Simulated assay, not measured.
Amino acid sequence: MRYWMPGKFLIKGVAQLLHTIPVYGCSECSEVHVALEGHQIKDCLGPTSRDRHSLHSWVRGSIDDILVPIESYHLYDPFGRRIKHETRFEYDRIPAVVELCIQAGVDIPEYPSRRRMKPIRMIGKKVIDRGGFLEEPKPWRLGNPSTPVDFDTYRANERFPPPLSEDIPRIAQETMDAYDFVRSASMEGWKSMAGKMQFVDEVFPPNCVWHVRDPRGPPLRSALKRFYGKAPAVVEVCMQAGAQVPDRYKPMMRLDIIVPESDEAKLVA
């Protein structure tokens, strides 16, 4: 259950901060930018980017641009019944991080999961002993849709009102800490399930964005692109709201690089 509270804080915190911190998304590609206006870096790969000389077509973003919603089918037994195309609607789809936590040991009554007392034996990728068979509960679609609502970004901006201005730095720091915890806990979940280190980006993508040192300054430009750093979208939002940046993100944000003026950039080797 230690996964639960940080996960709730993360979604609630991001939703509250987005009432104050502006976010933009490109309507033609997956680019996201956290600033008062969209950047002018020519790296759009959308279908009509050629007509815009690779400039992005910015629209106001949402929490789904910061916390990319990734869903997964809930499986009572990951090594049991396979989901077929014709039976896919008989299974619940829940946030992938929630399913990861369930399979790693978290119990949610509405989403039962088989707990084995004997290890599964495998040769390579082939399962040779599942530890015995157990009839799955029927119907398989048992979950209450309202159960994982705290872990769903849908209409989160309506569920969580704008914060008081004096509370923004505290919320930003709590959200940053929650993000760090959920990333680390997700990695632990992968290791406990797979027995080896695996990336968690498939279930909890960082969605890196350009780091903006001065959100109220001029927009980022292509000519200075090589001097800019990047950061996970959540980290960028929290930092602009007043949170302290963890040391692990500082190198990728290139905080030690001095960004020159446009005419000076030509003189930099």
Results as ranks from 00 to 15, higher is better:
Thr87Gln: 12
Glu110Ser: 14
Pro119Ser: 14
Ile94Glu: 08
Val127Leu: 08
Gly132Trp: 13
Gly124Lys: 01
Ile83Phe: 07
Pro137Lys: 13
His85Ile: 04
Ile102Glu: 06
Pro109Cys: 06
Gln103Ala: 02
Cys101Pro: 07
Arg115Val: 05
Lys84Tyr: 11
Lys126Met: 02
Thr87Ile: 09
Ile120Asp: 09
Arg93Val: 08
Pro137Arg: 11
Asp129Ile: 06
Arg115Gln: 14
His85Tyr: 12
Lys125Phe: 07
Leu100Ser: 04
Leu100Thr: 01
Pro95Val: 00
Arg88Phe: 09
Lys126Gln: 06
Thr87Pro: 00
Ser113Leu: 03
Arg88Val: 09
Arg88Gln: 14
Ile102Pro: 10
Ile123Gly: 01
Arg116Asn: 10
Lys125Met: 08
Pro137Ala: 11
Ile83Tyr: 06
Ile102Thr: 04
Ile83Arg: 03
Arg115Met: 12
Arg88Trp: 11
Arg115Ala: 10
Asp92Thr: 02
Ile108Val: 10
Glu136Ile: 00
Glu110Gln: 13
Gly105Thr: 14
Phe89His: 09
Asp107Met: 03
Ala104Gly: 06
Ile83Ser: 06
Glu136Arg: 02
Lys118His: 07
Glu90Leu: 07
Ile123Asp: 08
Gly105Lys: 13
Lys126Leu: 00
Ala104Tyr: 07
Lys118Cys: 01
Glu110Cys: 11
Thr87Val: 08
Arg82Glu: 13
Val98Glu: 07
Glu135Asn: 12
Arg121Thr: 08
Lys84Ala: 06
Tyr91Gln: 05
Pro112Gln: 12
Glu136Ala: 03
Leu100Gln: 10
Arg116Ser: 13
Val98Tyr: 03
Ile123Met: 11
Glu135Met: 08
Arg88Ile: 07
Tyr91Pro: 00
Val97Cys: 02
Ile83Asp: 11
Val106Asp: 12
Lys125Leu: 08
Gly131Asn: 15
Pro109Trp: 11
Arg93Lys: 15
Pro119Cys: 11
Pro109Arg: 05
Pro137Tyr: 14
Arg82Gly: 02
Lys126Pro: 01
Pro109Ser: 13
Arg116Ile: 03
Ile83Pro: 00
Lys84Phe: 09
Glu99Asn: 14
Tyr91Ser: 04
Pro95Lys: 02
Pro137Cys: 06
Tyr91Gly: 01
Arg116Cys: 04
Pro109Phe: 09
Pro119Arg: 15
Arg130Thr: 15
Arg130Met: 12
Phe89Lys: 05
Gln103Asn: 13
Tyr111Ala: 03
Gln103Met: 04
Arg116Pro: 07
Ile102Ala: 10
Ile128Gln: 12
Glu136Thr: 00
Met122Ile: 01
Arg81Met: 01
Arg81His: 06
Thr87Asn: 13
Lys126Asn: 03
Ile120Met: 07
Lys125Thr: 14
Ser113Phe: 09
Pro137Gly: 04
Lys125Ile: 05
Ile83Lys: 04
Ile83His: 07
Phe133Val: 12
Arg114Trp: 05
Lys125Tyr: 08
Gly124Phe: 10
Ala96Cys: 01
Glu99Lys: 02
Glu110Pro: 00
Val127Asp: 12
Val97Asn: 01
Glu110Gly: 14
Glu86Trp: 03
Glu86Leu: 01
Ala104Arg: 02
Ile108Gly: 06
Ile128Ala: 09
Glu136Gln: 05
Ile123Ser: 07
Asp129Ser: 09
Gly131Glu: 15
Glu110Lys: 01
Arg116Asp: 13
